[in-house]
Design a protein around this nucleic acid. Structure first.
Length: 423
RNA sequence: GGAGAGUUGGCAGAGUGGUCGAUUGCGGCAGUCUUGAAAACUGUUGAACUGUUAAAGGUUCCUGGGGUUCGAAUCCCUAACUCUCCGCCA
């Protein structure tokens, strides 16, 4: 959520930045500014009437104690109009604030100056490519066939138990899941992130804090009986640990990592691109989250990007890094890097990580602040990234490492899998 | 699921319808003392909005919402949450 005071003081710049995200609603921005104006006027009026009424109430108390009942009574008779005024003004104020809030949450975050303009994924900027793209023989199999061949994943069984998009991992497929999770967590801890295990269901306030709510409830599974949401990413519970928190300057940066399953409804997805592990309703992911000083957040974003790249390098997967264009970016992000690995058998790039700087967009909703050098409270910056999401990593690992005799496990994973080959 | 108790500042924990943004303790910060540290002592220490060059000042907030009253942390209604006991149970 953007700060009203910023919008008020930087109208032109806000409009220009929003346009990069293809969000061209000048009228909405102007309405917000007008509402805020009205809000301040109304509050000033109410404050001054309240001040009068408070003073009178205090005086009545003093008169009563002094035994001057008549004077107290005559003062009492005057309070009626104030009461009425305060009631009207506070109702008006509440209505204005409600309307302002409703409009404010419609505004996406402002993109960073380096964000390229554009509408579709084709407009994303390729920052770098790394790793050799393997040349597989013509009879190379896609991962869903490999998964069946080696009995690693049973998609049909998942359909029986739950539905499409809920695979059952078996045998070495199951072991590989646990190996990847542990490997990713260990690597994150080496990079200074402390591990947390968090709830998989969150309340409405948490959904709002990280900007899944309102608006995006269609993407989350909802447990109506208890008014809770299944998390679409560990970002939600981990970041919400710091909701309504004022950190000391020396507590920054906060670095947390955590493994969770993630649940996504993915309404409207279909076709070959959702085949196999390409798009699931439930998948495993290790998330890294940081809360940092505003001066440091872009430096930290690069570090997080390098951490993710390091994982891909160690796994020996060819990858590229994209700087997302305005049209492809998330609602709350100021700058996002996507990491994609090359799926040799599908002949396409698969997104395996997304690393974003939210600046104060989340912290403003979360009321996540720190005490700055002047001793005043200031909104912190939040960042998060997948490090990494498992399914597409598994997909490319299986496909890229397939040989005549089986699938070779990357060296760094062997201590975790305890086997070198799937065959 | 049944019954009961509770929710106050970073934490613990007082609080009579008016002098309560709130006693006190702990913690934090600053100072005195000390070569330094600890201890002790002294002072200080919530947030938001508004306003201002900055301030002063004003308003709001004692879980949320509503009500009674000239005046509510305090009384009433309501919701959420927490805890305890019983039941069930990994």
């Amino acid at each position: 959520m953007l700060q009203v005071s910023y919008i008020r003081d930087n109208r032109e710049q806000v409009l220009e930045r929003l346009a990069v995200k293809n969000f061209k609603q000048t009228a909405l921005v102007d309405e917000i500014i007008q509402l805020d104006d009205k809000r301040r006027q109304t509050q000033t009026s109410m404050d001054s009437v309240s001040a009068e009424a408070n003073a009178a109430a205090k005086q009545i108390g003093e008169l009563m104690r002094a035994g001057k009942k008549d004077e107290a009574e005559s003062l009492k008779s005057k309070t009626g109009t104030w009461k009425e005024d305060i009631k009207q003004l506070s109702e008006a104020l509440a209505a204005i604030e409600e309307e302002l809030q409703q409009k404010l949450v419609l505004l996406p975050n402002l993109p960073h100056s380096s964000v390229p303009k554009g509408l579709t994924p084709e407009d994303n900027e390729v920052v770098l490519e790394n790793g050799a793209i393997p040349a597989l023989p013509g009879n190379a199999l896609p991962h869903w066939e490999l998964a069946a061949k080696y009995n690693l994943i049973d998609f049909e069984l998942g359909v029986k138990i739950t539905g499409a998009g809920f695979p059952v991992y078996k045998g070495k497929g199951a072991k590989l899941q646990r190996a990847l999770i542990n490997y990713f967590i260990d690597e994150a801890e080496k990079a200074g992130y402390s591990e947390v295990v968090v709830p998989l269901l969150v309340n409405e306030a948490s959904g709002f804090g990280t900007a899944q709510l309102p608006d995006k409830e269609g993407q989350m599974y909802y447990v109506g009986l208890d008014n809770l949401y299944l998390i679409p990413t560990a970002e939600v519970p981990i970041t919400n640990m710091y909701r309504d928190v004022i950190l000391k300057a020396d507590e920054l940066p906060v670095k947390n990592c955590g493994y969770t399953p993630c649940f996504r409804r993915e309404a409207g997805s279909y076709g070959a691109h959702v085949r196999g592990l390409n798009r699931l309703h439930q998948f495993d992911k290790v998330e890294i989250v940081q809360v940092v000083h505003p001066d440091k957040s872009y430096e930290v974003l690069e570090q997080m990007s390098l951490h993710v790249q390091g994982l891909l390098q160690k796994l020996g997967l060819p990858y590229r890094v994209l700087r997302l264009c305005g049209g492809d970016m998330g609602f709350g992000s100021a700058l996002t890097y996507d990491m994609e690995t090359w799926s040799a058998a599908q002949q396409r790039w698969l997104e395996v990580s997304s690393v974003s700087n939210f600046e104060t967009f989340q912290s403003n909703r979360l009321k996540l602040r720190f005490r700055n050098a002047e001793g005043k409270t200031q909104l912190a910056h939040t960042l998060n990234g997948s490090a990494l999401a498992l399914p597409r990593i598994v997909a490319t690992l299986l496909e890229n490492n397939q040989t005549e005799t089986g699938i070779k496990i990357p060296g760094v994973l062997v201590p975790y899998t305890k086997f070198e080959w799937i065959n």
